[in-house]
Simulated scan of single mutants.
Amino acid sequence: MKELILANTRPGGTALLGDIIRLYLAAEDLPLWQAGEKELEKLGIAPPFWAFAWAGGQALAQYILDNPDLVKGKRVLDFACGSGLQGIAALKAGAAEVLAADIDPHAIAATDLNAALNQVRLITTSENLIGRSNPGWDLVLAGDVCYDGPMADEIMTWLHKLAASGTQVLLGDPGRTYLPRQGLQRLISYSVQTTSALEDTDVRNAVVWELIPSEQKYGKDQEEKSFS
Rank of each mutant, 00 (worst) to 15 (best):
W50N: 13
L77K: 12
F49W: 12
K92I: 09
A89I: 07
K161G: 13
G56Y: 01
A116E: 15
M156S: 04
A51Q: 04
A80V: 05
D148Q: 13
D102F: 09
I64D: 03
I108A: 02
I88V: 15
T124Y: 00
K72Y: 13
G94E: 05
D112G: 15
Q86F: 01
Q62I: 04
S165N: 09
I108W: 06
V140S: 12
G82P: 01
S83T: 11
E127G: 00
A90P: 08
A100M: 14
A100L: 10
F52P: 03
Q62A: 15
G166D: 13
D173F: 10
W50L: 12
A110C: 07
H160S: 11
T125F: 10
A142T: 11
I123M: 14
A59M: 04
L99H: 07
S133M: 00
D102W: 06
P150D: 13
W54Y: 02
A93C: 05
T111S: 15
G136Y: 13
L91T: 08
A95Q: 06
N114G: 13
W54F: 02
A100Y: 13
I108Y: 07
A115P: 12
H106C: 12
A61C: 05
G136E: 08
L179M: 07
T125I: 08
G175W: 03
D78W: 03
A61P: 13
K161W: 09
V71W: 06
L70T: 13
V71H: 02
Q62P: 13
D173M: 10
G57M: 05
G82S: 06
G73C: 09
H106W: 09
A164K: 15
P180K: 02
F49D: 07
K72A: 15
N67Y: 05
L179W: 01
Y147P: 02
L159N: 08
Q62Y: 04
D78Y: 02
T125Q: 12
S126W: 09
A116V: 04
S133P: 00
A95L: 04
A95N: 03
K161S: 15
S83M: 05
A80W: 06
D144Y: 02
K72M: 08
L179N: 08
E127V: 01
F52R: 11
G82K: 11
D112W: 08
T111N: 11
A101V: 00
V71Y: 06
Y178L: 11
R132P: 00
L113Q: 05
A152G: 10
G149Q: 12
D148Y: 01
G84F: 01
I123L: 14
G57V: 04
D104T: 07
R121G: 08
A53W: 11
L171M: 11
K92C: 09
L117D: 01
I103N: 02
T111W: 07
G56S: 02
S126Q: 10
D138K: 12
